[in-house]
Design a protein around this nucleic acid. Structure first.
Length: 729
DNA sequence: AGACACCATCACATCAGTTT
DNA sequence: AAACTGATGTGATGGTGTCT
């Protein structure tokens, strides 16, 4: 920075004495408004809506009523909330009250009188709790420790059969799990929490409005996505003289922590390579960076990375990312941006999607409750608590008061009190097992509805309520057909709407019932399994029989990339020689890169369902499981030069055929057409569309011309005679 | 065989509301 | 200041019956 800069960039300007006098006046009368975070604004907006509804009900003007509010009014409001909501916990009521206070302060400009607050608090605690039977308990606080995380990750890589939109999502999920464990961060620091970032509440009551105008500049800045982006991580090489390659470490700079714009506080975490492949984040980061082509140096493969060395006089070398990648989120959202669901090049992964994957995964692991991102945070906190000093723990957790951490503690007392009293060594190992999630894990528990036995599932389809709703819907559909010819014509009419409503009701009822049977079965499993096991062992008639030990069902992934990784991730982490270690890493990362390039992960669940005779054909299946039977029909998008334009069946997509790794073959020509037209939607009416077949090398103006080319040259006949005539082909 | 309308289901997305 | 939950909605996909 030069000296000149200091004068140039500052926005200081001279004001007249008049200005300061006016300003003083303003400040005297106004109130200092807190700059709330977006999520707080949203919260205040919600309470405002409630207040308005309440006032409407009473026939009062919301703002005037708020300004002139008496403590009795607030009490009545709180009661009204309880009458008109599903609140069960005291904490929720309390939160409503706190948020109402924020609203009051914002609109009226001062806080409610302390005495009134006290009274209202008492009223809630003494009265409302009893009357509405509010739950005062605090929920349990599950904690994930290393062993738990290991089980989850191991399952994720080797045994998980849940579908993902593309390969990258699999990598991202593992990355997120590891980073949350290694940084104890809240999920909001890593993924995009929609509601925390976007606010659609324009104004609050009263004079606070004019204060809001300066917000645009920090709310709408596109380049500052509140997610973990490449700019926040740095990969650094540190010299390792005498070794075959240098040390590779990573720093993660977490910016988006709770309250980060009221008191910004950066936290930088160091991560290094580890021996167990499952626990290595750096491997995953390298993979994603290579996939995104993010290095500004000419690094395009793992081998390139491992070849780079620190040479004197440098003491470290940073593997910098390209400028335009710095604001690209590392974990991104699947989206139908191009065709089918694939990871979007820019959109950050949404919290909800992350949570969804996490729940699916943890249920299929066999955990008793689906894990939540906070479980990992608590687990890391606990681990840090054991090894580091209190100030450090506070820094890691981002707590202002050390006491906050107590709220995170598991209800199980984390020390062997009995041992201390008796003066004997504490049974740490036992304690450890007891207080963590893995103790409950049972992979045999049903992980989704389809795992339930047939008998349970058939009950659903002839459940009286479902039948009733079904009849209602069918009757309406019938009526609509008679009146309007078809359902399509009936849409928008009263009957049509009624039918849609009946449809929705049926769907909801079905879903609820499914959910209930599933959780019921799952709970029952975990309730009875202990006793069942013991009884089985004690049963004399079974004693001589060979104890049927649990054989995990072998999972053979259909996707060869997934199969390969399943093997690689399981390689035991013995002491490898340095060369072997490098080799292993290179192989692993390359396998990960291949997985990340897969654009469509086939559903693993379809395989066993196909037929009962699968057992016979199993061997042949295993030999080539990645060739869905008969789907390729001898067609392959060969890279060799052709002597004529490509000719496709009616079930291929002309665009996708040229995409590497994309093997789509549609169930019917109509589906192919729908898909094909989705590509076309990316082009404007008469934009030039160039033919994906390089052989043609032609571009066509407009959809029509392109379609006609596709039909004539590539023999694609997605369109029916009628459609063709209509389109003039 | 294939064109078509209709329907069910999957795999999420969205948003208001509840809890920590 | 967030994290999490639950109800409801939706587009893509695949199946079925009917007509031609």
């Amino acid at each position: 920075m030069s000296i000149l800069d200091t004068s140039g960039s500052g926005k200081k300007q001279a004001h007249s004495p008049e200005y300061y006098r006016r300003r003083r006046q303003q400040l005297e009368n106004g109130i200092i408004q807190k700059r709330h975070a977006t999520s707080t604004k949203n919260n205040i907006g919600k309470i405002k809506r409630r207040w308005t509804r309440h006032c409407e009900y009473l026939g009062e003007d919301p703002l005037q009523f708020l300004v002139a509010v008496q403590k009795g009014d607030v009490m009545v409001f709180l009661e009204w909330i309880l009458d008109n909501s599903k609140i069960k916990k005291f904490s929720s009521l309390h939160e409503n009250w706190r948020q109402w206070c924020q609203l009051y302060r914002k609109a009226v400009g001062r806080s409610l009188h302390a005495k009134s607050c006290q009274d209202i608090n008492d009223y809630m605690k003494e009265h409302l709790v009893a009357r509405y039977n509010l739950d005062m308990s605090v929920g349990e606080k599950p904690v994930m420790n290393v062993d738990d995380l290991y089980i989850v990750l191991h399952h994720h890589w080797t045994r998980d059969a849940t579908p993902y939109p593309d390969g990258r999502q699999i990598i991202q999920l593992a990355f997120l799990l590891l980073v949350s464990a290694y940084t104890a961060s809240r999920p909001g620091a890593l993924v995009y929490v929609d509601q925390n970032e976007r606010t659609n509440i324009q104004h609050f009551f009263g004079g606070a409005d004019e204060n809001e105008e300066d917000e645009e500049d920090w709310d709408l800045r596109e380049d500052d996505l509140k997610t973990l982006c490449y700019g926040q991580i740095s990969l650094i090489l540190l010299p390792n003289p005498g070794g075959l390659r240098d040390h590779l470490v990573m720093e993660i700079d977490l910016k988006h922590t709770k309250g980060h714009h009221t008191k910004p506080k950066r936290k930088i975490f160091l991560m290094s390579e580890v021996k167990q492949p499952v626990f290595d984040v750096i491997v995953l980061v390298l993979t994603m960076a290579i996939l995104d082509d993010a290095f500004s140096a000419n690094i395009h493969s793992v081998e390139d990375v491992f070849m780079a060395r620190v040479s004197p006089p440098r003491r470290s070398v940073r593997l910098k990312f390209k400028k335009d990648k710095l604001n690209v989120p590392i974990c991104r959202q699947p989206d139908s941006y191009y065709s089918g669901m694939t990871t979007h090049p820019m959109k950050p992964l949404r919290y909800h999607t992350y949570l969804y994957y996490l729940q699916r995964l943890s249920l299929s692991v066999g955990m008793i409750r689906a894990m939540k991102p906070y479980d990992l945070r608590r687990g890391t906190g606990e681990a840090v608590d054991k090894t580091a000093s209190l100030p450090l723990l506070q820094q890691v957790m981002g707590h202002v008061y050390a006491s906050t951490f107590q709220k995170y503690m598991n209800e199980r007392v984390q020390t062997h009190v009995q041992a201390s009293f008796l003066g004997i060594p504490s049974e740490d190992a036992l304690m450890n097992i007891l207080s963590h999630q893995s103790r409950y894990i049972d992979p045999r528990a049903p992980s989704k509805y389809d795992d339930l036995p047939e008998s349970k599932r058939t009950k659903l389809s002839n459940h009286p309520e479902i039948l009733k709703l079904q009849q209602m819907r069918d009757a309406l559909a019938q009526e609509a057909k008679e009146l309007y010819g078809s359902m399509k014509n009936a849409s928008g009419t009263k009957i049509g709407e009624l039918k849609a409503k009946a449809d929705a009701a049926l769907r909801a009822a079905k879903k609820n019932l499914k959910e209930a049977t599933f959780t019921g079965a799952r709970n029952e499993f975990f309730d009875t399994i202990d006793t069942l096991e013991i009884n089985k062992q004690l049963d004399p008639s079974l004693l001589d029989m060979k104890q049927d030990t649990y054989e995990p069902q072998r999972i053979v992934h259909r996707l060869k990339e997934r199969r390969r990784l399943a093997d690689l991730m399981q390689i035991p982490c013995q002491e490898l020689s340095e060369e072997d270690d490098i080799m292993r890493r290179v192989v692993l990362i390359n396998a990960l890169i291949d997985l990340g390039r897969v654009e469509r992960v086939p559903s693993e669940n379809l395989v066993p369902k196909k037929s009962a005779q699968d057992t016979i054909t199993n061997e042949s299946q295993e030999a080539s499981p990645d060739e869905p039977t008969g789907s390729e029909q001898g067609f392959s998008p060969s890279p060799e030069p052709r002597d004529r334009p490509i000719s496709l069946t009616t079930r291929h997509c002309l665009f996708c055929v040229f995409e590497p790794n994309y093997q789509c073959y549609f169930a019917s020509a109509r589906k192919a057409r729908e898909h094909f037209e989705k590509h076309l939607r990316n082009f404007k009416r008469d934009q030039f569309i160039s033919c994906p077949d390089k052989f043609c090398g032609l571009a066509f103006r407009g959809h029509r011309a392109f379609k006609s080319h596709a039909e004539k040259v590539h023999s694609i006949r997605y369109f029916t005679e009628a459609q063709r005539i209509k389109a003039g082909l």
